[in-house]
Simulated scan of single mutants.
Amino acid sequence: MARKHRGRRRAVTWAALLVWLIGALTATQCARPQSPPALQVGLAYGDRLVWMSDRQLAAALDDAAAVGARWVRADLSWADIQPDSPHEYRWRLFDRVVRAASARGLHVLPVLAYTPSWARPVGCAADKCAPADPEAFAAFAGAAAQRYAPRGIHRWEVWNEPNIPVFWQPSPDPVAYTALLRATSLAVRRADPSAGVVLGGLATPPTAGQAISATDYLAAVLARGGGRFVDAVGYHPYTYPGLPSAATAPGMAWARIDRTQDSLHGLLAAHGSADTPVWITEFGAPTNGPGTASDGQTASDGQAVTHVTEERQAAIAADAVRTAHRTPYVRALIWYTERDLGTDRSSNENFFGLRRADGSAKPALGALRHAIAALRGA
């Protein structure tokens, strides 16, 4: 009997030692610094891809692949898909974009947005009008998820810059947007349980007039439970003529990701969503327009600084990749855009491209490509 008891004691001792060793190894592994998640990099095209010729589409997406992007962000406009009624879908143009992106190994982030005339509120005449019925918009979103999940699309951004009146008319309304976000998220996830939803990329004006700041808007959405329906928050922290890495002052857009008292991350944490990342779904710098250009060093000549030199754009592009990689809560950086929209200098909106309107490359094309390559080689 005594011998049997000693055997049991030895068995218990060895079992206890094994448990201790497993615990020590686990603790050691947990104590090791964890590598940050890989930064997802992409190019944003707005509504342009669907209207390009086959040759233009191929050239645009070839640029995305060549620069090292993994994502393309493109509008999937409800007004294009169901222009006449809720009973007919016209998927052909976006199908072509999806096929071309897939052939190059690119993921598509569709922006679900923009209202056909039959679905707008009475008296609102633009496609940027908020839908009269969130459930009708959600039905469109669910149909899109059902169609494109088998083709590899599992991430969806709900609207673009809903906090400014340019894109949410007649005026921004976080209550109405939260209702739209909830209905859309539920419909997309019913169609594709693996889907992820990105809160529509927020612009960065102060709260004034009809515009609502990104932080005030996000706070209102989160207060109404909107955080439960998203996997990431879209944000558009344009910093030009400054570099993202230098944007530490409280008023700078990049700082509001996680460095200010009312930061996006702070708001998410306060509402129980500290693990929700930020996706920068637009970022860039224009190289022409009215006013004067900045090289980041020289003072303006008395005119308003509305754009940067091409060399400064290249510096901003490279710095954005490095800074996004170092910003803990940022998981995606999507550059706007691949090519200038035109040559009309009355608006700087025409000059955000990595290429000029004639197709010639700006220095930023190579700078962005080299920065992405260096990031992946690190």
Rank of each mutant, 00 (worst) to 15 (best):
L76E: 10
R9I: 15
L375G: 09
R96D: 05
R182V: 13
V97S: 01
A69W: 02
P162E: 00
S213Q: 00
G196H: 13
G201Y: 10
D192P: 02
G68F: 02
V19N: 10
L268F: 06
E135P: 00
P86L: 04
E349N: 13
A139E: 04
D80L: 09
G284P: 04
W71A: 01
V72E: 00
T309C: 11
A31G: 14
S346P: 07
P286F: 06
A38W: 02
R312M: 10
A270K: 11
R48W: 11
G200M: 04
I81L: 12
W51S: 15
G209Q: 09
V12A: 15
A16E: 08
A58K: 14
A138D: 00
H307Q: 13
G359P: 04
E157I: 04
S53N: 09
A274V: 05
A318D: 04
T343M: 04
V197H: 01
R339P: 03
E338D: 14
D258V: 07
H325V: 13
A59Y: 02
A31Y: 12
L368Q: 09
D127E: 12
A232F: 06
A103N: 11
V158M: 02
P290Q: 11
A74P: 03
W14N: 04
A130Q: 11
R224G: 09
K362A: 10
A214H: 09
N350Y: 10
E338K: 08
D258N: 15
Y148E: 03
R96T: 08
A125V: 12
A60H: 13
W91N: 03
I372P: 01
G23D: 06
Y235S: 02
G302E: 12
A293S: 14
A203E: 05
R256Y: 03
V278P: 00
G289D: 09
R155V: 11
P170N: 03
D262M: 07
A364C: 10
F137A: 08
F352Y: 15
P205A: 10
A149G: 04
S213A: 13
W20A: 15
A179T: 12
E157F: 05
S360H: 12
G366C: 02
A2P: 00
T323I: 11
A315P: 02
L199D: 11
S346Y: 06
L267V: 06
T343V: 14
Q56S: 13
S245H: 11
S185Q: 03
V97W: 00
R90G: 08
R155Q: 14
A58L: 11
I81N: 08
V97E: 02
R3Y: 06
